[in-house]
Write a protein that binds this DNA or RNA. Structure first.
Lengths: 348, 348
DNA sequence: CTGAAAGCGCTAACAT
DNA sequence: ATGTTAGCGCTTTCAG
């Protein structure tokens, strides 16, 4: 007993308007080549039936589905939700639907999500890989046969273009800024040192430190404010205690700030602090926290624009070019100076 | 010159495996009623072709599309992205896809989004109405013929179930808490007083104030920390200056905090502060800020669960019952006590 | 257990 | 300017 779909169909509209299917189809696709009278009649029929074209049927006809996929670790993470918002705006401008799937940073869920997504035959796809070195992911992405772009994390050895922020440079100028302030022993604190973004930032930190003839001091074990406090305690107990701290990711910045506060260590006088990733209250807390700000929205926007560019090109050339040459687009981070690094800027 | 879709099809799998279409269909739908030998053969064929069933074609066959829609003002807003994350988890558990569309709080975009969404024939839909009193929205929702649930804001005069937090009660206990502390002149600061949520909170504030025989003191003009400072300045200049402030929404809480800080007004000694909506740094700033915390994830989760319940029921009864009786589900807010209200809790 | 065949709603030739 | 018709890829009777 098939429960008949209660949605009206194109044929019903055609019948009601007393025209053929093709005419209705023309009307819903812009109404060209249709006489004004018919146009009105059909539009009235559509309105009175509350008809909406069934996308599944259109998609089934082939070619473009006007759908793109976005696969990200989490939708609640400000970084990725900003990317998603920007990507959605671009998709909308191209008259396409963005389907967002989350992976919780699990490779398995990622593969499952990709399979679900592919069932909907997206025209293209943007992904922030859970584990960018994952072999399965790489081969899967090579198989799917639609343009893909990675964000936040490049996929090594693949031909996939990626859009990332200039993590290395951002960390480098941040470190350099601390050096310019005259700090000599700059510690670098972080977690998740296996991630591409973090490794890049560490690299930037190292470059600046070495170039200045200083000694790197790295602790990658900051899981929460407790471990931050422990780390800072250990650091300060050394014969050569740090006079500045560079935190390489959002949570670390906050944990370090909390720890310094709890340990009653005056910032920036005893120890200066410079963090990564801006957040709403960075300018409100005392002292306000200087940070490297990543262009989150830009990453989502540029990735989506690049994707649609590829789609357009592929549409023009008959067969999609084997692969557009791989590239990595680096978007500039910005140093936001506040008080915690020792800058004498006045609050407003 | 139609560019043939490069995806393989069910028929191709069938040909390769040397079986009929129906058999392949059975395999991808669980593999019941198929002999083990055939099963393996078909599965191998599927794997070697990298075949993924085309959802559009399945959907076209009718019945369930295993898709639900979520229409929210913004995906970058922590409140809604938390809802979205929770709803997606529920959808996934029901083997369904969640399609998220944003409205920027514009009624027009909302209607457009709804139309786009309906083209994909979702089984049901969750919506946080841009303007919950909007007449067009209401009639549209009544037309679409699929179960819908609203979140955060009920839709008056409609039969749509909604899931909201107990804004009124939350504001009431917050106010009561301040009263219990002994504050006598409690001002209430907010913005967007036309929104349902805010109106409810104002109601709760009033109830508590009046019940205690105190005088309400309301300012709904807090747009930023500048206007917060102005408002607070005015308030303190009165002959009967407030000794406590209740902020009714996230941004107001922060603006007020910033303003108090900038004006060098000691909290909670000169003026106590209690805010709405928890945020990551509420416990980090000094003093830490007491707030009413809304169950954001629960709202998304419960709404999705309710929706799937309705879908299941509708599936059982032949025709969807005219309308399940309308209801409003209120989820409890919680008072998170920290220092800003005057509580002597020790930080940990 | 398995296959043949009839559509699902729409688009795109091809006719008229 | 408009109607006819053949599928798109899949599910689902209905017969073997």
């Amino acid at each position: 007993v098939a429960k008949k779909n209660q949605h009206s169909t194109l044929s019903e509209v055609a019948k009601l308007a007393g025209v053929g299917n093709a005419t209705v189809s023309r009307v819903i696709n812009g109404g060209h080549l249709v006489s004004p009278k018919t146009l009105t009649r059909v539009r009235d029929a559509i309105a009175s039936l509350g008809y909406t074209p069934n996308q599944a049927a259109r998609i089934l006809k082939g070619d473009r589905t006007r759908t793109i996929g976005l696969v990200i670790p989490s939708i609640a993470d400000p970084f990725f939700s900003s990317c998603a918002e920007a990507a959605q705006a671009v998709a909308r401008a191209h008259d396409s639907l963005l389907i967002v799937l989350t992976t919780q940073n699990s490779s398995q869920i990622e593969i499952d999500s990709l399979n679900v997504l592919m069932g909907h035959r997206p025209d293209g796809l943007i992904i922030a890989p859970a584990i960018s070195t994952d072999q399965k992911l790489r081969s899967m992405l090579d198989q799917i046969g639609i343009p893909a772009i990675s964000i936040d994390r490049p996929i090594p050895k693949s031909s996939i273009t990626s859009v990332v922020s200039d993590n290395c440079y951002g960390a480098k100028i941040a470190t350099q800024h601390l050096i310019d302030h005259g700090y000599q022993r700059i510690a670098c604190l972080t977690a998740e040192s296996q991630l591409y973004t973090i490794r890049e930032r560490i690299r930037g930190y190292r470059q600046a430190i070495v170039a200045a003839g200083l000694t790197p001091l790295l602790d990658t074990s900051i899981q929460d404010s407790k471990s931050a406090a422990k780390s800072i305690g250990d650091l300060l107990a050394r014969p050569d205690p740090p006079d500045a701290i560079l935190a390489l990711k959002n949570s670390t910045t906050i944990y370090v700030f909390e720890a310094l506060q709890r340990l009653n260590i005056p910032v920036p006088t005893a120890v200066a602090l410079l963090g990564f990733d801006d957040f709403e209250l960075a300018s409100t807390v005392r002292p306000s926290i200087s940070v490297v700000r990543q262009p989150m929205e830009d990453i989502g926007r540029v990735a989506a624009e690049l994707l649609f560019n590829q789609l357009l090109e592929d549409g023009v050339n008959e067969r999609p070019r084997l692969r557009p040459s791989r590239q990595t687009v680096m978007l500039p981070s910005r140093l936001i100076l506040r008080h915690s690094c020792g800058c004498p800027i006045s609050l407003d």
